[in-house]
Design a protein around this nucleic acid. Sequence first.
DNA 1: GACGAATGCAACTGCTATTGTTACGTAAGC
DNA 2: GCTTACGTAACAATAGCAGTTGCATTCGTC
Lengths: 135, 135
Amino acid sequence: MKRNSRLSLALHTLSHMAGDPDRLRTSADIADHAGTNPVVVRRVLGRLREAGLLSSEKGHSGGWKLAKPPNEITLADVYLALGENLIASAEGDDDISDCSIEHALHRRVSGVMREVEQSLISRLGETTIAEVRGA
Amino acid sequence: MKRNSRLSLALHTLSHMAGDPDRLRTSADIADHAGTNPVVVRRVLGRLREAGLLSSEKGHSGGWKLAKPPNEITLADVYLALGENLIASAEGDDDISDCSIEHALHRRVSGVMREVEQSLISRLGETTIAEVRGA
DNA sequence: GACGAATGCAACTGCTATTGTTACGTAAGC
DNA sequence: GCTTACGTAACAATAGCAGTTGCATTCGTC
């Protein structure tokens, strides 16, 4: 694994789950399949649980499974659940400069960024994890 | 400055230059205005010179100025000159896995990413650095 | 009730990318 | 020749992320 693997790991795992929604999978199994670590899996999948996409159960014969039917989970849901702007804000956060040009630029660029991010989310929303398998 | 400041620095500097295209500015002046370091400025502006957007002159009374009229330089030109994908590739580079679902996912997601990146470039191409000043 | 299996979570270690900094070479003008 | 400025290499400092270990907690089974 390398960079920005959170989204990759999440989508990969959910897509597999879509093929057998009732099966419980342990983070160890998932980590093994994804070539990573159980703790990493729990970290990422925990975000998806908070967003209501997954449910997890502790204890013996515990594990993870989908909290919703696979055709009701879109790629956008996963993207948003992870809360990671792929569209980097592209501007040093809150640089309160007194430069008017800086402000004009920031308005212009961040406007475009918001547009593009919405476009990304919209496009991702067109595909459910159930559809990915057959794609 | 913080993160992803290259694009920010480049756009900011070019926008200022657009207001007085013939004036030579030293990297020290630019760095001072942008709150960073002359070497950083030269690093970033060097990419823009390679792309033909800026010219630099050494020696006494040297410095930087626009290589083209400001209304012929779009935000997309700057973005492309820096060669940094704001749209992170979102998939661990070349993970040659034998998992068919992984492949299907990768095709789908990277297809959307390419679309969105094109859309970003297209939108940035609609604005020149000359227009930013009045925006 | 004890044991084993699983998540939940905190802390720590690398690894990588980026920025900032220093230093030195080179070219242009005075 | 001296000053000024770019060009570049090398290094330190920082931040984010994946990976790892350890331990508490919870649930099922014996």
